[in-house]
Design a binder for these strands. Structure first.
Length: 532
RNA sequence: GGGCCCGUAGCUCAGUGGCAGAGCAGGGGACUUUUAAUCCUCGUGUCCUGGGUUCGAAUCCCAGCGGGCCCUCCA
């Protein structure tokens, strides 16, 4: 976490940290890295005693450009119109499409402990006239803007091109209009049917005032104007924008040369790759993003993003691997170290900060949080699969004292994660189920191991016996036949689960129907699958 | 064509000028009641390749190779 603390140490004076997003659709897990970094920058600044404002913008005057996100009957009517002007497709009470989708990510951010001091809506700032001064400067300096595009991004616009998009007074589209003249008060616009492929303009044209929400700046200018309007001093952005000649370069140049203000400090960050693939909401390639959020609680998700430096791509492959259990284990290991317990292995630099910034609550005492009992994910994954186990009791026993309220909440959260993981990503080797038929592996059991199974069938406790009773029956039967306990358990797991190990065998057998258990023990003792 | 990131043990990654390291996985062992718990133990690797600088390079420089993402429009 040195990067955030170093940044905080480098700046002086009050800081405004900003990011903004177009509320065009659902967000995927990878796109949460930016907000988490943003939040940590703000937390680090505050920890360093800097007065800090965290802003998050909703670019809701941007045009709708993806018809997949609209209901079929709405496509022709709505494509190209500002998101803020499109009705909520979900029909769940939001005033617009933009409000609906913005609410999804506001809620998602809150769930991750990210609470900006203020969300701002660009449609409101345009309507209120706050953007008018920047619109005027951009139009007055259109030639400079064109030159910047040419020089920085190698994009050549016609000499009549002006950096503004009028919201067509006739059809309401913003993505289809082009402005060719500016007389100092009004612009001449055309709403062209063929300007973009994804939306069709209505063909009207005329002179209109660009002020008061009648028009919107193009992306790069709007970005730079936001910096001036809000006094932004730090703004991270993803590497898709941060590439040379890319969006950030253009906006930086526009900030300097058109709006005459130094752009904010950038914190470029890499993406999250799932199973070597870029996150994609539409392609269905790799792992569906929303599943990860269901399986990873907020603190572990924050931890996933914060462990590496921002400029490192994160390779995360949860599908059929132990990546998720290991993420929990590493989180717990850092927590244990913060709490002053001995831990195995080396600790990464700044581990206490990584742990602290991963916590949901920015005001939490991270040493107190670190000291809490956190049930090991792998252990829970086993217990969750054994019927009849009271996991709360088992975890209290493991801790050595009853769980407090916070620890109980952690346990519940992890149990949900464990169950989700077992249903989705967990490798077969993590799943265990009592086999319906005798597993083939019993054929490889030694004669004395099979003998033990047969003997246990004869000494099986009465129906309704508890796990304790079964467990002691296993031990006494094994020792009476001078079979080491380890081999006795191995034989039991082979007979019931078809694997060499498993959960506590006594409790497992107690959870099953007694006659089934006895029958299976006899079959296994016979050493072969009985004819059907 | 350009930019950024990565390339070190089976996997995930530390180490960024001074004897190649951890975690996990895997092997071996201990433990007659927390048997997927816990404890002990085991690392011969083209540090991607080739040059260069240096007393000394995984580390710095140059040139490559491989992988990933991005760079047109839109945002």
């Amino acid at each position: 976490m040195e990067w955030a603390d170093e940044l905080a140490a480098r700046v002086s004076g009050p800081q405004v940290v900003n990011d903004s997003k177009t509320p065009s659709g659902t967000i995927h897990v990878g796109s949460l890295r930016g907000p988490v970094i943003l939040d940590v920058v703000a937390r680090a600044l505050r920890a360093a005693g800097r007065e800090t404002t965290l802003l998050y913008g909703i670019d809701d005057l941007d045009p709708m450009d993806a018809q997949a996100l609209l209901t079929p009957d709405a496509v022709e009517r709505e494509m190209g119109r500002p998101l803020a002007h499109i009705p909520d497709q979900a029909g769940d009470g939001h005033s617009s499409y933009a409000r609906h989708h913005a609410q999804v990510f506001i809620d998602t951010f809150a769930g991750l402990g990210i609470k900006p001091d203020r969300y701002y809506w660009m449609s409101e700032h345009y309507a209120a006239g706050d953007m008018d001064p920047y619109i005027k400067v951009a139009l007055d300096r259109a030639a400079i803007v064109r030159e910047v595009y040419q020089r920085v991004a190698n994009v050549r616009h016609p000499d009549t091109w002006h950096p503004i998009s009028v919201i067509c007074p006739t059809c309401g589209r913003v993505g289809t209009t082009i402005v060719t003249k500016w007389d100092g008060e009004k612009v001449f616009f055309e709403c062209r049917p063929d300007l973009v492929t994804w939306a069709k303009g209505c063909g009207s044209s005329g002179w209109v005032s660009p002020y008061g929400g009648a028009a919107k700046l193009p992306w790069n200018l709007e970005w730079a104007a936001q910096w001036s309007l809000f006094g932004v001093t730090i703004e991270p952005c993803g590497k898709d924008l941060a590439t040379a000649g890319g969006s950030r370069d253009r906006s930086d140049a526009i900030a300097r040369e058109v709006f005459e203000r130094e752009p904010p400090i950038n914190v470029p960050y890499e993406f999250l790759n799932i199973g070597g693939k870029k996150m994609s909401t539409s392609k269905g390639r790799g792992t569906p993003a929303h599943l990860i959020a269901e399986v990873l609680p907020p603190e572990q998700l924050r931890f996933l993003f914060l462990r590496p430096r921002p400029n490192q791509a994160i390779e995360f492959d949860p599908d059929g691997t132990d990546a998720i259990p290991r993420l929990f284990d590493e989180f717990d290991r850092l927590g244990a170290a913060v709490a002053g317990r001995d831990v195995k292995g080396e600790l990464p630099a700044g581990f206490a900060a990584v742990f602290g910034y991963s916590l949901l609550d920015p005001t939490a005492d991270y040493e107190v949080e670190a000291a809490r009992f956190r049930p090991p994910f792998g252990h829970l994954a086993v217990l969750a699969q054994v019927p009849g186990v009271d996991i709360g009791v088992a975890m209290a026993a493991e801790k050595g004292s009853p769980l407090d309220t916070a620890e109980r909440a952690i346990l519940d959260e992890r149990l949900r994660a464990v169950r989700g993981w077992l249903d989705t990503f967990a490798p077969e080797s993590a799943r265990m189920e009592v086999r319906a038929t005798l597993p083939e592996g019993v054929a490889t059991l030694a004669p004395e191991e099979r003998g033990f199974l047969g003997a246990l069938a004869e000494k099986a406790p009465a129906a309704g016996s508890d796990g304790e009773t079964w467990q002691s029956a296993i031990f006494t039967t094994a020792s009476s036949r001078e079979l080491p306990a380890g081999r006795a358990f191995k034989a039991l797991y082979a007979a019931f689960l078809g694997r060499p190990n498993g959960p506590r065998a006594g409790w497992l057998l107690a959870s099953l129907d007694r006659s089934f258990v006895v029958e299976r023990l006899r079959e296994a003792a016979a050493g072969a699958t009985l004819p059907a």
